[in-house]
Design a binder for these strands. Structure first.
Lengths: 345, 345
DNA sequence: TTGAAAGCGCTAACAG
DNA sequence: CTGTTAGCGCTTTCAA
């Protein structure tokens, strides 16, 4: 058992006293906010070191009305997607000497604690909002308050000019499906959509549709199911199809996490990939090259999305300006799950 | 291009005025810190709603000397390990109505900005410290200040009674290696260590050693190399071995991320897994069951480590007490990369 | 049950 | 170049 009490920390006036200057001077040297005689500054630095002084963030925030912190709102920390995105955000944040505050909107804590969990702002200078983590109403509320906001993988509700960064979904998806059609002669291609309101999913589905249309393949609604952009939902969806005896040349899993579920379901059913059914994903997560067979997918620059979004937000905070819409390019990654290359078993 | 200005938000006195009460009363109803006539409270609630009032976190923090947020210090956001751990932490944090502030110790920002990036405290009520993200000196400094600290995957430096939570490494590792020896008759088992000062790695290596000793297999230092607990280092390490013509029955990759690198190197060299060389990992990441062949490994309850650590920290903050050392159990997960089961290709 | 008032530690005018 | 001082918005005694 560990026990701890609380002790007193040095304040700015302790430092001032120790250095024989006023607190204003201490503030100046710490923030380099006005010229200070180098000899005086020296004394201050020494005092800071001796007292092991650290500025009190809350006091600073109160006085300056800036927190030097970015907030990140997530629906819930899940999937493998999350890690690279966070790395990108963290990169931008620390390069700019800021900190990162994360809230995950656990469904159970929703309305109740809203007063005491100030999502509003106050503890951050701006908010990065991942798709589906805030209602349009909340978004609007904050927007009207002029609170700096940047959206990830989501465009703003009508009339709200909130910058947003995402990836090129439709073109990537279309190329992927056309590859299936043109190179592998697939005609019956299943598509696993993501969560309801997920824009990435909608665009990917449009890319899928475009590819079909371009090749005169009639759209069959039975070939679309919900894979939830996650392993479990995708597995069940495919199991359902298999149960119904659905005939399929290929499955576009929606994203790579879902593709793992698709692969599992197919293998359990004794289907060979890609000989019996091809499988493709979207994202190109680190794990995707290690799947068996290695997954053909579309590379989404996830880390860059995070970094770009954070940079836009910082720019918005500092200059009041940001690019309204940033769409990062995607790239087709051909591996073996589509039927290409040295397909092993 | 998006442009934004800044507007004014409601303060507690706006609410007080609006409700016809004093700010003290508003504070009381918001914090439920003293009985308030229900009719008065009602008026306050209405005012809060009408003005869309949110308490100012910094002001609160300054006045109460509590931030209601936990800090998390990471060396750098990398590997797949990170995501489940963070999910666990977030779970505990939001269940307790707190927020999570993340700092990642990017090497480049180290000493310089230390004054302005108050790692010290101040913006958090306590700190979760992941292994290798803070020097012993820093740890000591904060400990002496009585700042609540909990260590992840690391025990405290001598004499510092800082609570710590980690997983049972040695026993798990030993069981894993003994499985290789007893069931698969392996004798020449390579071990890929993690980063230098990483305690998990040390314990896993001890488990490895114990298993050898228990079976009268002499320890051969040539069979230990550095895999850095990541894919790339592990791949190069194995490539080196292969280049030297090292003979190996099996490779214990240190962790699952490293195992992906081992598998890649082995396959590139035309080795079959597990027929030519068995491969095992540690952690049981979500991706591990999807590797080819599915990875035999030791399951570490990563998410629980995060959750437990956060809970301990919250307890330490609130009650001044916490369990000194929590070691979560691990479990052997037999799949096919060791040679068990229906080994396919 | 409620109000008045004193800070919390810092930044940012404003003087000098 | 340096010091004085007025708040920032809230919590928390102390009185009433």
């Amino acid at each position: 058992m560990t026990t701890a009490g609380h002790s007193q920390r040095a304040t700015i006036s302790d430092v001032a006293k120790h250095a024989g200057v006023s607190i204003a001077t201490v503030s100046r040297v710490i923030n380099q906010t006005a010229p200070v005689a180098s000899e005086t500054a020296e004394r201050v630095y020494n005092a800071v070191a001796e007292l092991d002084y650290t500025p009190h963030a809350a006091a600073r925030g109160l006085a300056s009305n800036k927190t030097n912190t970015l907030g990140l709102l997530l629906p819930m920390i899940g999937g493998s997607y999350f890690s690279p995105m966070l790395r990108g955000i963290e990169k931008a944040v620390s390069q700019n000497g800021m900190a990162l505050l994360i809230y995950s909107m656990q469904t159970d804590v929703h309305q109740s604690a809203r007063l005491n969990l100030p999502l509003g702002g106050h503890n951050s200078d701006g908010l990065l909002v991942f798709t589906n983590s805030l209602s349009d109403a909340d978004l609007q509320r904050m927007y009207k308050r002029n609170f700096p906001l940047v959206l990830l993988h989501q465009t703003p509700p009508a009339n709200l000019n909130i910058p947003s960064v995402t990836v090129e979904n439709k073109a990537g998806s279309r190329k992927l499906v056309e590859h299936l059609i043109e190179v592998h002669g697939c005609r019956r291609i299943g598509f696993l959509a993501g969560p309801e309101e997920h824009e990435d999913s909608k665009w990917r589905q449009m890319g899928y549709l475009e590819a079909l249309t371009a090749h005169n393949i009639p759209f069959n609604p039975e070939l679309v199911a919900n894979g939830g952009f996650n392993e479990n939902d995708a597995r069940s969806a495919v199991e359902q199809w298999l149960l119904k005896g659905m005939e399929l040349d290929a499955i576009f899993a929606g994203d790579d996490d879902a593709a793992t579920g698709v692969i599992t379901a197919l293998k359990r059913a004794g289907k060979r990939i890609p000989q019996d059914i091809a499988v493709v994903g979207f994202d190109d997560l680190p794990l995707s090259r290690h799947l068996s067979p290695p997954l053909t997918t579309v590379r989404a620059p996830i880390e860059q999305v995070g970094q770009e979004a954070a940079n836009q937000l910082i720019r918005l905070i500092r200059t009041g300006q940001a690019t309204s819409l940033v769409i990062l390019p995607t790239e087709l990654i051909i591996r073996q799950s589509c039927g290409c290359g040295s397909s092993s078993s």
